[in-house]
Every structure is written in structure tokens, then in C-alpha cells.
Design a protein around this nucleic acid. Sequence first.
DNA 1: TTGAAAGCGCTAACAG
DNA 2: CTGTTAGCGCTTTCAA
Lengths: 351, 351
Amino acid sequence: MNSKAGASSGPTLEDVARAAGVSRATVSRVVNGVRNVDPEIQETVRQAVAATGYTPNRAARSLVTRRAEVIALVVSGAGDASEAEQDAFASRLFADPFFGRVVSGVISYLRPRSMHPVLMFAETSDARDQVVGFLRQGSADGALIVSTHAQDPLPAMVAEASLPAVLFSRPAGPVPISYVDLAHKDGARLAVDHLLARGCRRIVTIAGPCDVPSGHDRLDGFRDAMARGGHPYAPMAEADFTLGGGARAMARLLADNPDLDGVFAANDLMAQGACQVLRDHGRRVPEDVAVVGFDDSSVASACTPPLTTVRQPVEDMAREMARLLQQHIEHQDRAVTSVVFDPELVVRASA
Amino acid sequence: MNSKAGASSGPTLEDVARAAGVSRATVSRVVNGVRNVDPEIQETVRQAVAATGYTPNRAARSLVTRRAEVIALVVSGAGDASEAEQDAFASRLFADPFFGRVVSGVISYLRPRSMHPVLMFAETSDARDQVVGFLRQGSADGALIVSTHAQDPLPAMVAEASLPAVLFSRPAGPVPISYVDLAHKDGARLAVDHLLARGCRRIVTIAGPCDVPSGHDRLDGFRDAMARGGHPYAPMAEADFTLGGGARAMARLLADNPDLDGVFAANDLMAQGACQVLRDHGRRVPEDVAVVGFDDSSVASACTPPLTTVRQPVEDMAREMARLLQQHIEHQDRAVTSVVFDPELVVRASA
DNA sequence: TTGAAAGCGCTAACAG
DNA sequence: CTGTTAGCGCTTTCAA
């Protein structure tokens, strides 16, 4: 009979109203928990809702409230990647435990408010347009953006379109957009001071990519702290935040500085790679070489030996991002804000 | 002035129609690419769209088309986890590269069709209700479910509500629901045959949790193949698909079977843990002990030594899931289907 | 080929 | 405290 495609329509407010012998408006009030409804009628309505199996239609509600109750969680880069590169990107992204923590924090904030995250990758110019389009259509009320490159144009795009958005980590340029960040330099200083206090004299660093703000800042902090400790010229190797990259950087550093006794890696994954290489070269960690990582991600405790690392409270930061975004959504005129979290040293076995 | 909360409303179809001097219906036709519109008028309308900066409102469209163009990507378990456990769950989930590959495959199918995935965790009974509610509200047109436990009630719930859904891996019970799966037993056989052909005589297995279908099937396949090869009583240790779990299982196995010379681990993460323990115990991989993993996830190639493993084409499987789901959404009456993929042995250094 | 008109299901004034 | 009414912006018959 009814072969019209589409979802089974289910009962509407009208049906419930009829069943309860009241008006649509009253049912709506009860469903939305608005005060000023006679308790008795409330009960009647609730029963009618149960009896009919009513569920409000979100599209209809959104149409009038102008809220989707959905936010976009977008991971964006700068490139103009091919399909294959995008796949690789996604895999790499999730191989790093960092993103899982972001998702976890975001969901923990959103869920109790019955909001939901739509996952989007924005590695190409088309994809970025899709993100902006998605927001402009009202499919999402705002965006949480995790940017992986300084040159990422997306933050500027959403700012220009004055769409509610919050970034994870400070934007590279002077973009008027709220963000949540970590005091990366302080974190690096924590690591260096620990290494120094431990008695390390030849400390090197495996830095993250310099075009990623966090990579840049951690290196900066490392150098500052080292200079302050009397070591203005510490060796460094730049890597890409991956395990393999960290391993290769460690090998280079080891070749150039056979007498090194301390390593500060800009994330745990690279620290793990470093540990492997050190062991392969017969150096004991931490006896011969002390290693400090960054992030306190899941690999930190899984590593052998467990990593001493600088903790980044990613889940809390993600929750804060979501909170800020909600404020921007509710008060469109709210001023740009930034929240910077403090890192913390977590001492385990590697240093 | 206008302090009404809500998204900036932007131009509507009406505005474009006025600008182009045609009716709303015509603009709608052009925007949606419906035939039977005079090419000249089409052009006029397109210009008006550009001039006004029009973007269709998705809620309004959904209200009439009854399509959200959004699907739920849900990861569900069986438990009734606390908040903290859920966080841990999320972190563990993303620590395993598997999920990233699923997301990647799903997005690669969805994006060209301008559909988007909403990420949901369903570890508690409340969360499961939220998922069902979300679908019933029409916020999503269907669900892609990655279930982590055999006792997960969600598949039955969505089937009962006859909501379009597709599972990753076969449901534990006789639930009428479509799924995509891998021939796990064949995969295990591939691994065993390779180990046997290599000359291994004392092969053990680190199995996944028995209450997870894939864990169960891989163990089953291992035993079958071993029996067929003349080794009906191979030692096994059950673990939890994590690196640490794999390591502990390996240590037990090694203590009980000091003469073992081959290991089949039910996933790469556990294989990696096994390799670490083996090396710590002075066994060389693969010279003394050959190790085969499962999945061909990113850790397989990052591992030292690189892992010989059974490849599971997760991205392709995820794409197929999305494709099946779309079919179910379009033809609500479509019969339940299952697609089973074949595994493939990838030989690297570990065996 | 185009336009007029009728809703989709809901919320939110505004009366009563 | 409750009902009536007027849309939200869009698609889609149905006539012209």
C-alpha cells in the first residue's frame, strides 16, 4: 500500500493530543517539561505519550527552534589530499590515542545535554566547503575544530562566516576564534627540569613538526629551559609525532651524540619509538638514557619501560571546548575566549 | 536589536525566488537538480542563489523528505558502565587502530553522498535508549553498529523497532539484522598453515575474549587447522585484544611451554605485546619463535619486527556496511543480507 | 514548463 | 493554566 520511501512516520503530537483529550500545545509543554501545566493533565498526557509510543520529530522541532542539537567535530588539515591520502590520514589520526581522548571528552559533555557530534574530516578544499555548508544549513549548531596544521584555512573560514566554533589549540594566525590550549612551554620546562634534576648532562630532544603550533611551542620551551639550565645548544631532531618518526629521529641523534643521557620527546608515541631504538642500541632506559614523553596518552603506561611524561588533560580540555562552544551557540555575540590548561609531570620508570 | 537566540537565518527560498522573479517551486527544482526547467531560467535562478548566498535549510527539507542524511555510527557494548568506565572504554577503543579504519571506510562512502556520521557510544542502558530514540526521532536515517560483546542488546533493539541498521560482524543470537563480517576461521587457518609450513612444531595461541564472536571464531579456526595439521591439543591463553593483555598471556604461555616456537595472536596489538615479552625473555622473533598477528592494522608494520599477519580489509568492510545501510534506508522492506569478506595473509618479518 | 497551494510536525505568541 | 493560531522553510501534488 504505502510504498512511499522514508521513515515510518509514527504518531505525531496531534495523535497524542487526541488520545489525551487536550491540545497539541499542552502536549508540547509536557514533552518539553515547561512549567505551568496541571499535574493531573501532565499525567494524562504522559500516559497518552506512552500509549501511542510518541517520539518528537527532530526536524520539525529544529525548524522552529533553529537548533539541530548537533555539533560538528572536525579534524582538519591544510593539504589538498587525494582520496588515498585521506584514508591514510584517518588511519594515522586514530593510531594516535590523542584523538580518542578528544572524542571521549566531547561526548562526555554533550551526551547529558542530548547533543551529538558529527564526525568530519576536512583535508581537502572540497571537504572544508562541506563543513561550512553543513553549518550554514543548520545541520550543526557549531563546530569543534582540531587542526593539524598551522596553515589550515578552516578556522578563518568559519570565523569569517561567523559560525560558532572553538579550536583545540591556538590558531596560527590572528583569527578571531575561541580556543582551548595547553601551556606547552611550561610542559617542556617540566620535562627538562626533571631530566636536569636527575643529573642528565647531555640532553637532546625529538621535536614535533615545526609547522604545528604545539610542536613549535614544545621545542621553544625545551630550548628556554635548557638555556636557563646552562645548556644553550642542545641537539634536536624534528619528527612527525609518529612512532616510526620518533625512532628514526632517535637513531640520528644517537649517531651524532653517542654520549647523550637524556631525551625529551614531544609526544609519547615518539618517546616509545625512541625507547625501542635505545634498547636496540644497547642503552638501558632509564639507567643509561632517561626519556621523558609528552601527553600521558595510553601508550605512556603501555610502553616498556612505562614513560615519565608531561600530562596533557585532553579529556578536560575537550569538555571545556564543548562548553565554550555551547556558550557561543547560546549567545551568538559572546566574545572570543581562550582557556589555557596547565601541564603536569607524571613520573614513571623511564626518567 | 534582534537578540533572539538562534542561528542567523540567512536567505530563504522565498528570497531567491523574488530575486530571480520566479516561484519558490522553480527555485526548489533548480536547487535539487530536477529536470524540466528551462535552461535560461535555470541560469537566472543559479545567479540569484549566488547573489543571495542561499543555503537550503536542512531541517525544513528533512521535515518533508523524511530524510536526515545522517547516520549513526555506534559503538556498543553489553555493560552498564559508569561514567569513568565509559571514558576508559572510549580511550581503549581508539587506542586500537581498528576503529579508525572503520570510521575512515564509512566516511569515504558517505561523504560523496553528502551524508554524515554521528558518533555514539552505547555502553549503558541509557545510552542505548538514546541511540534508539535518536533514530526514532528521525535524527539519523539508520545505524552502523560496531558491537564489542556478544550479549550486546542493541542489535535486537533496533531490529525490533525495525530501524535500518547494519552490524560489523555477525550478531551473537538469531537477530534479523544485516551484517558484514570476515571469514575469521579461514584467517586463522591461513596463519596456522603458514606457521606449520615454516616448520613450527610447538604452536600456541593468544586468543581474544571468547564472548566476542570474532575472538571465538579465530580460536575455533586455529584449533581446526591445528588438528588438521596433527596437533589437536595446542595451548592457548585468552586475553582481551589489548597490548598489555597480549603480553601477559604470552608470559603465561611461555612459562607453561618453554619450548614453544610459534604464536598465533588473535590481533596485532596482542601480537605486539607478545613480541615484547618474547624479546625480554631472550627469544628472537622469528628465529626462535615465529609470531603471526591478525588484522594488519597500523601496528603491524610499526612493530619490531614487522608483523606477519592476517589482513582484514576493514575499510572495505566498513564501506560495504554503509552501502548496505543505504539500501535498507531506501527500501525499507529490503531483506536482511550478510556479506562475508575473505582474509589474506600478509607476510612480513615476524614469521 | 511553471505557479499556486497544501502541508510536513512542531513551538511560541497571544488570548481566554 | 489551556487552547487557538500562525508560522519555521521546504517539497510536491495539482492545475494552468
